[in-house]
Design a protein around this nucleic acid. Sequence first.
DNA 1: CATGAATGAGGCTTCATTCAT
DNA 2: TATGAATGAAGCCTCATTCAT
Lengths: 190, 190, 190, 190
Amino acid sequence: MAKPTGIEKSDLLTAAKQCLVDKGIEKFTLKAVAEQAGVTQGTIYYHFKTKEQIILEIVQDICENSWNEIMAFDQQMTQSALISAKSRYDNDAFYHKLFFTLIVFGFTNPSIRQQIGQILATENEHLYNGLKKLWDTSPIEGVSLETWSIFFNALIDGLAIQVMMRDDFDVDAFYQQLEKILQTLHHLGK
Amino acid sequence: MAKPTGIEKSDLLTAAKQCLVDKGIEKFTLKAVAEQAGVTQGTIYYHFKTKEQIILEIVQDICENSWNEIMAFDQQMTQSALISAKSRYDNDAFYHKLFFTLIVFGFTNPSIRQQIGQILATENEHLYNGLKKLWDTSPIEGVSLETWSIFFNALIDGLAIQVMMRDDFDVDAFYQQLEKILQTLHHLGK
Amino acid sequence: MAKPTGIEKSDLLTAAKQCLVDKGIEKFTLKAVAEQAGVTQGTIYYHFKTKEQIILEIVQDICENSWNEIMAFDQQMTQSALISAKSRYDNDAFYHKLFFTLIVFGFTNPSIRQQIGQILATENEHLYNGLKKLWDTSPIEGVSLETWSIFFNALIDGLAIQVMMRDDFDVDAFYQQLEKILQTLHHLGK
Amino acid sequence: MAKPTGIEKSDLLTAAKQCLVDKGIEKFTLKAVAEQAGVTQGTIYYHFKTKEQIILEIVQDICENSWNEIMAFDQQMTQSALISAKSRYDNDAFYHKLFFTLIVFGFTNPSIRQQIGQILATENEHLYNGLKKLWDTSPIEGVSLETWSIFFNALIDGLAIQVMMRDDFDVDAFYQQLEKILQTLHHLGK
DNA sequence: CATGAATGAGGCTTCATTCAT
DNA sequence: TATGAATGAAGCCTCATTCAT
């Protein structure tokens, strides 16, 4: 008993994220996390002070790490990649479920809420940088690029909801038309 | 003991909604609902078979009733009313919190998920009807009005998230610029 | 509301017996009895003061009524009818289950225990009367007919247990050999 | 809080048996077991998955352990020891109450019923072995020793019922006459 | 470092019982 | 006479958390 397992905090966080998405908020128990990670409950308490702390660190982790991966598309930004990359169901249902779950946590937990706000701000910024590369100026006068970035970020999240909740949502058809909207906007700017 | 209270199922549902928003998923307990409604836990079980049933009936209730009130703006639909009405924070943070909470419930509960999908479809339809009145044809060729309704519905939900999670979000400034986007789209269609 | 249902105490007792056997002691609830009888729980409280009272009246009912039917075989008493009649599984698994259930109730309820004791005494007496008709004198000197009646009554109950609890119990084979035992005893007495 | 108690599963089972006999099926609560064992309810759930599991393990325990003690008489088997040993009220009212209680549980729980059946089969076997030592051959032609063992086992259980339920049952007088029956059977075999 | 045993508070649920109608 | 709404106590069970080893 009491052998080093070589398990690190990040492993526990990964297990915790998986649990949160798989079981939902109500059944997100430390027992479940421990099982998922292959350790005992006691071990979790060696790494985290409380259950809430785990959730907080998940949020921080997303803020710091996950974002990088998700925003890798930053590089080869094209027209509709703007939106599609983060929204395609297959790629990130997991991420979006996790994200929305944390948002709902945020409703009653100021500290989480604030961090989620921070993440959103960062997302907006990333989109802003992407837009700057694509568009010389805003396609519509009086609408700043900052506003456009918020606009698209909101669109991304809202679409994720539709995709996740509606079985009959035709993602591909929608993106084809979305592409046209973006092209039109692009031409407006010239 | 055991006197009629004159309390009806709808009162319990109202109390339950309030609790769900106030306390969050984890602390959404039947004790809390009972207290909120001014009855005993036993009474709740006289009206609902299980806790899950309460949540299900909340979703159904939203589907059937709440929507009417929220969509009252259907009548005097103007340009940006399209979006703003449902999104203004002060008006319906309650509704949006409730809605997102149920969405997250839906992640792990197929039966709820399906109903939420239904609600989204209905929302899309309402927006579609509003758009038909505003626009003779789609402002952009190849983009159907159905797509636009999904587009705006997603935007509404995504914005709600930003509004709810970010203290520094300047709602008014954003809506002013959103208005311009809508005007531009409107003129495109001519 | 509040219509006479023509339901009488005996109907409720019948329903209660059925529940007791079907659901077992732990799940013997008044709700179950009410459903079985097709009335509401309130109705039960019109006829019985408490749940315990129902059980008590079941015992009394068995003591007074059921016994007559079960002991109808008294008339055509033959050799092994002595035992078989009351023991054949198909005929009275119901009765035996009820009886043993009440016995176990009696372990912790003196008033029930006493009545069960009374029932057993009556059973012994019935068997005694049957034996008197079959045998002029006891087949074994020094063993009274009273003892034989207890002996056979115990055998009947003990066999019922074996029959009820063992799937592989070969009732017919056993009774064939039991018949031989009884015949031998019969001849001993001559 | 949360200090090792040195209590083991077998201690909890012992406490549970005591409760089952003392309080009866209906009042056999985990709270009662916990108090009897001097632990908290939570501790019980650390060792057993459900309440039903406790009952199941009681049955298993009887099957494996108790039997050895009870059947110690196997060694010095004499005539009526055959029956008396297991039946004398003072010795094992506890065991018999427990046993009958479990039988009644078995009525509505197949898994328990099956194990009880197994126990009965084992009892029959033990009696069979005892009989083989006492009797060279069966006292009555056509009646196998297996049948006799079932016969006596049933008698034992049936008598236990009479002894437990009737205050006025004269155990000693009955056993004296039972002895005579056994002697007669013994002589028949010669 | 890590564990397993233990805790106690609290959650969901059932149930006997009551009472106004 | 019968009912349905309501109650509150109690039951089973889960869970975050603690602590000796």
